[in-house]
Simulated scan of single mutants.
Amino acid sequence: MNGGGAGPTAVLVVAVGVLVSCGVRLLLERSLTRILLGIVLLGNGVNLLIMMGGRSGGAPVVGAGPVDRMSDPLPQAMVLTSIVITFGLTAFLLAVAYRSWYLTGDDEVPDDVEDRQIVRRAERDEVATADLGGEGPGADPEQVDPEPARRRLRRGDGVA
């Protein structure tokens, strides 16, 4: 930010836009390495955006200077928290990418079996069979028995 406190400069706004747009573009890739780089770029862009929201000035320490000339400490605390969260997410994704590379020799995220089935059905304009219900609680294992177990015990039926 500039020293006059008038707001962010055009260079910072463009830098935030470039970092966030490149980060989002890399997040949409299938390679875990590119996704990792996208998270790092996106995190840095958001951190810069948060810092642009604060007031510039001196150190936010009581007694270090006049209160009206101090910088806003809240964006600094938020960026510090964001850095820690981004670092943890980066470490986790790096471990996942390493494990994927170790097991498969590739860091590309494969399609799920369900995704392939959905694509095949979409190509044939086929609708998935829907569970229309109507079987009743005894015939459908997904249904929950509406009668509580205590009532069955009082009647002497026992618990299934």
Rank of each mutant, 00 (worst) to 15 (best):
M1D: 12
A6N: 12
A6H: 05
T9W: 03
A10Y: 14
L12A: 13
L12F: 10
L12R: 14
V13Q: 11
V14P: 01
A15K: 10
G17Y: 05
G17A: 15
V18D: 02
L19P: 00
S21N: 03
S21F: 09
G23D: 04
L26M: 14
L27T: 04
E29T: 15
E29F: 03
L32A: 13
T33Y: 10
R34W: 09
I35E: 04
L36G: 15
L37V: 06
G38P: 09
L42G: 04
G43S: 15
N44Q: 14
G45K: 07
G45L: 01
V46Q: 00
V46G: 06
V46T: 14
L48F: 02
I50P: 01
M51D: 02
G54M: 06
G54E: 07
R55Q: 10
S56K: 08
S56R: 11
S56C: 07
G57K: 04
A59T: 11
V61T: 10
V62W: 11
G63K: 06
G63D: 04
A64P: 01
D68Q: 12
D68H: 11
D68T: 11
D68F: 05
D68Y: 07
S71P: 06
S71Y: 01
L74D: 13
P75I: 03
P75D: 04
Q76P: 00
Q76R: 11
M78V: 15
V79W: 02
V79C: 00
V84L: 15
V84M: 11
I85A: 15
I85D: 08
T86D: 13
G88Y: 04
A91R: 09
A91S: 12
F92Q: 10
L93G: 07
L93N: 09
L94H: 08
A95Y: 03
A97W: 03
A97N: 08
Y98A: 15
Y98M: 08
R99W: 03
S100I: 00
D106I: 06
D106G: 08
E108C: 09
P110H: 01
P110M: 04
D112L: 11
D112Q: 04
V113E: 15
E114T: 06
E114S: 10
E114R: 10
I118E: 14
I118D: 06
R120H: 09
R120L: 14
R120F: 03
R124P: 00
E126C: 01
E126R: 09
E126D: 12
E126K: 12
V127Y: 07
A128D: 13
D131N: 13
L132S: 02
L132W: 04
G133A: 06
G136K: 08
P137T: 13
P141W: 07
Q143K: 10
V144C: 02
D145I: 00
P146C: 05
P148K: 03
A149V: 09
A149S: 03
R152A: 13
R152N: 05
R152F: 05
R154P: 00
R154H: 08
G158M: 06
V159L: 14
V159C: 02
A160K: 07
